[in-house]
């Protein structure tokens, strides 16, 4: 009986529902996070001084505030200035902005690491500015940024559980409900933990595959 608990249809469907919400949180947030990260990272390297300043300030605050605090600001704080977000919307907003700030660090580092000699060589071959960025800078920067950015996404998978703290019932939230209803706290959170473990492991595996695929001999991570 005990072992079969997690095979009951309503439990399974609750877990599946939670997992689906989590996935809906994770995928858009990581996409927005990457977009923000690349944009802000590029601005921090190539922008004019004012833009750089603003971008640096954004990163400072969004990496400095705990994610929980940010989520509370979006969900409980914004209504005070007349903006009402659903807990789901506030979560995606919070995850994207926070993740983007972290992502931009890796992107910035990657852009900075592409040696100026490479740009000059491209220019000397007659590449335009845009073409230089597209065909020389980006492919190199992408490889350098990939491990860090990929790890950020793995972090995001785990941090998506914090949506529960602003009442968005995703996987952890469903788990909390199941556990409280059944008083099976240990088993339930073991199962929930295992599901996250699968998600993070699969993400890590994909990331490793991607890194191997893009491997270039002699192109060191940090040179």
């Amino acid at each position: 009986m005990n072992e079969l608990f997690f095979l009951q249809p309503d439990i399974i469907s609750a877990l599946a529902r939670g997992l689906w919400v989590s996935v809906q949180l994770i995928i858009p947030s990581s996409l927005f996070g990457v977009i923000i990260g690349v944009t802000v990272g590029a601005l921090r390297v190539y922008g004019n001084p004012l833009v750089k300043r603003i971008a640096d300030g954004y990163v400072l605050v969004f990496r400095g505030f705990p994610l929980v605090v940010q989520l509370f600001i979006w969900y409980f704080g914004l209504p005070h200035i007349g903006i009402y977000l659903t807990s789901f919307g506030a979560s995606v907003l919070g995850f994207s902005l926070c993740s983007g700030a972290y992502q931009s660090e890796y992107v910035r580092g990657a852009f900075l690491s592409v040696k100026t000699g490479q740009t000059m060589a491209a220019r000397a071959l007659g590449f335009s500015g845009i073409k230089t960025v597209l065909f020389v800078t980006l492919p190199q920067a992408f490889r350098r940024a990939l491990p860090g950015c990929g790890n950020e996404i793995i972090y995001l998978i785990k941090y998506s559980s914090l949506a529960y703290m602003i009442t968005c019932i995703e996987l952890t939230g469903e788990g909390k409900i199941i556990a409280s209803d059944s008083f099976r706290f240990t088993e339930t959170f073991m199962v929930i933990g295992a599901i996250y473990l699968v998600l993070t492991s699969v993400a890590a595996w994909i990331l490793r595959r991607l890194e191997d695929r893009l491997y270039i001999p002699g192109f060191e991570q940090y040179s």
Binding site: K158, A179, F185, T186, F189, M190, G193, L197, T200, S201
Partner: peptide, 21 residues
Amino acid sequence: WFFRGVPLLVLLFLFYFGLCS
């Protein structure tokens, strides 16, 4: 692998509500 792969919040719940009791 385990402690890097499971969210903090889930582990807090697991330990506090689950394992402790």
